[in-house]
């Protein structure tokens, strides 16, 4: 990259930064696309681990170490160490959300000539983000009381997995399809609508004790007074309090780091590898290996 800088001296620092941000955005989209097609069931398998544990407790059975529980533990350990990289770069539902939101913005700009994308009011964000905990508790209760399997037709993730397998016969799954359509509608009017408001696995991740070094670190004393660039970029409205980045809601979009005029947001992996792109690629490769070992990849079977 430094070489390119010397070859094209005409670019201003601001232009270089813009170019770098665009590259990182494309890299993220590329990684997301790879995982979207190779591991679309990762999030559901991990959450099925939660369901499996509580269904067995409800039925009075002994807990069992199976592929769903190992997927859950694998996702959780990865998240404790690296923060919610899984949410930001891997999860198929997150990728779907990003795609729908981007498409909605494009349509609103080009077709309806709106300058600003129509949004669900930010005032509702803190309340909305609590909803996922209610959903998590409700699903755990349904599992523990043995009622969950009776509601299988309501499961929007099942319908999503149908589509991913290119199956379009949805007999019995109409309530699930309606819920999925509602979720996709929400995704169009709020970035990461599902992830921050509804995702029960996101609730599990947010409750995990992520290592203090896992999220991006900000040194408030080095900030430009009054600058709120990172906060305005944040898809999940994280506050600028000193420990705001530790509250578990960060989904790892890493957009704040790109927009910061003083490059005041960084993390150990980015410092170590001296490159944001390399840090993302290394973590993606690590997760890919983990996912294959956990049996989450559609194309590779390991016994």
């Amino acid at each position: 990259m430094e070489q390119e800088v010397r070859e094209k001296p005409k670019l201003t620092p601001a232009q270089l930064k813009k170019r770098r941000n665009q590259r990182n955005a494309w890299l993220r989209a590329g990684i997301q696309a790879v995982f979207f097609f190779s591991m679309p069931g990762a999030f559901v398998a991990g959450f099925s681990g939660v369901k499996n544990i509580f269904q067995r407790i409800g039925a009075g059975q002994t807990l069992q170490w199976n592929s769903f529980v190992s997927a859950l533990v694998g996702l959780c350990v990865f998240t404790v160490i690296f923060g919610r990289f899984f949410c930001g770069y891997v999860c198929a539902f997150g990728t779907l959300g990003d795609f729908v939101y981007w498409l909605s913005g494009l349509v609103q700009r080009k077709v309806f000539h709106r300058k600003k994308q129509l949004q669900i009011p930010a005032k509702l964000t803190p309340w909305g983000q609590k909803v996922k905990y209610v959903i998590l508790a409700a699903i755990i209760a349904l599992c523990a009381f043995g009622l969950y399997d009776r509601l299988s037709g309501w499961n929007p993730w099942s319908v999503f997995s149908f589509f991913m397998a290119l199956r379009f016969r949805l007999s019995g799954y109409w309530p699930g399809l309606v819920l999925l359509l509602l979720i996709v509608t929400g995704m169009a009017f709020r970035e990461r609508f599902f992830c921050q408001f509804l995702c029960p696995m996101g609730a599990v991740f947010a409750l995990l004790p992520q290592m203090p070094f896992a999220p991006l670190q900000r040194k408030p004393e080095q900030c430009i007074p009054g600058c709120q660039a990172c906060k305005r970029q944040c898809p999940v409205d994280i506050k600028l309090e000193p420990d705001g980045f530790l509250n578990g809601e960060c989904i790892g979009s890493e957009r704040c780091a790109g927009v910061c005029p003083k490059n005041n947001l960084t993390r150990w992996d980015r410092k170590l590898l001296r490159s944001e792109a390399a840090a993302a690629l290394v973590k993606a490769a690590l997760f890919f290996v983990l996912g294959v070992l956990l049996g989450l990849c559609r194309f590779i079977t390991i016994r």
Binding site: G41, A45, S67, F68, G295
Partner: peptide, 11 residues
């Protein structure tokens, strides 16, 4: 069973 995702098939 090549069409099944491994984590799901194992169960």
């Amino acid at each position: 069973h090549s069409g099944e995702d491994p984590a799901y098939y194992m169960l």
